[in-house]
Amino acid sequence: MKAIQYKDYGSSAVIELVEVSIPSIQNENDVLIQVKAVGVNPIDMKIRMGLMKEIRPVEMPFIPGGEAAGIIVAVGGGVSKFKVGDEVIALTWKNAYAEYATANENFVLLKPEGLSFEEGASMVVNIGTSQSVLFTEGKLEKGQKVLIQGGAGAVGGAMVQMAKAAGAYVIATASGNGVALAKSLGADEVIDYKLQDVSGIAKDVDLVADTAGGEAQVKLFQVLKPGGKLLSIAMPPSQELAEQYNVKAYFVVSDISAKTLQSGIDLIKAGKFKTIVSKTFKLEDAAIAQDFLTAGGVNGKVVLFID
């Protein structure tokens, strides 16, 4: 089968298109998926560049990609939830940049009818991360005020929709075309962070969901009410600032499983959640796709497709 692979850490130049054997099912609870589309996520580049090797080392040569959509072509002896022919979305953790990949059935869901494979591959990480930040850790409730830093990005856009569906008052930051996108997703207010000072506009926020990190994260402390929370998926927040502003602040490691994805799937079925695919690339153009995402300013998800 065709697969994207690299043999050492580095820039996108290390990426190669190779021919390797189709993986076999090693666990009785695994399924084998003929991959039709793959989500491209920032962690893909962090792993490739070696930035994660202390906490998430990989064995070389390595096939990247943790998020896929496709068709089940084989099931392990212990699989009870799926059958051959099912169209699914899955968290594979690795090896998804390929024509075939395996996944544990606990991290697989039936693809909602009406969604393309590209749309299906765009939602697993987004929904699972949003659920983890907003509800599992953030305990967001109806009527509360949430600020989403990066509300037009892949994860941020999902957060806007899921927070709004839960009855929260949603403030999003965005720029350029992202301002209109965040509004279309349901944000009550959208702050253009390139033109406006977030800390001078948003006040008394219950929860800040930070998807961007960097120096901008520091100002987010100022918008929180005492006792509020700043949760980041980008970088650990300052505990000194958390103490200074009398808030809780920490880095969130997302729990992405079929269970955490179900609420998002229900919203899709109810017509209350839109998947946003920013741009698609062929599998063999994975290096170009990663560089496109790394360049920034992407509204929505970057997806690889396999003919």
Rank of each mutant, 00 (worst) to 15 (best):
Q5F: 08
G10R: 05
S11E: 15
V18W: 02
V20L: 14
V20D: 12
P23H: 06
P23V: 01
D30T: 08
K36R: 12
K36S: 11
A37M: 06
V38Q: 01
V40C: 04
N41P: 00
D44L: 05
R48Q: 03
M52T: 03
E54G: 12
I55S: 15
E59D: 15
M60P: 12
G65R: 02
G70Y: 06
I72W: 02
V73T: 11
A74K: 13
S80N: 14
T102Q: 06
A103I: 00
A103K: 04
V108M: 03
E113N: 13
L115D: 05
S116A: 10
F117P: 01
G120F: 00
S122W: 03
T136H: 13
G138H: 04
V146Y: 08
V155S: 00
G156E: 02
M159L: 13
M162K: 12
A166N: 08
A168R: 13
Y169K: 14
I171D: 10
V179G: 09
L181N: 05
L185M: 12
D192P: 11
Y193S: 08
D197W: 08
I201K: 07
K203N: 09
K203W: 06
D204G: 03
D206P: 08
L207T: 03
G213E: 10
Q217K: 09
K225E: 12
L230H: 08
L230A: 06
S232N: 03
P237G: 02
P237N: 08
Q244P: 07
N246S: 09
V247D: 00
K248N: 13
F251Y: 14
S254G: 04
D255G: 06
I256Q: 03
T260A: 03
Q262Y: 00
Q262K: 13
D266R: 08
L267M: 07
I268L: 14
I268R: 01
F273R: 01
T275I: 10
I276W: 08
S278C: 10
A287H: 06
D291T: 09
D291K: 11
L293S: 10
L293F: 03
L293R: 01
T294V: 15
G297E: 06
V298P: 09
N299S: 10
V302L: 00
V303H: 00
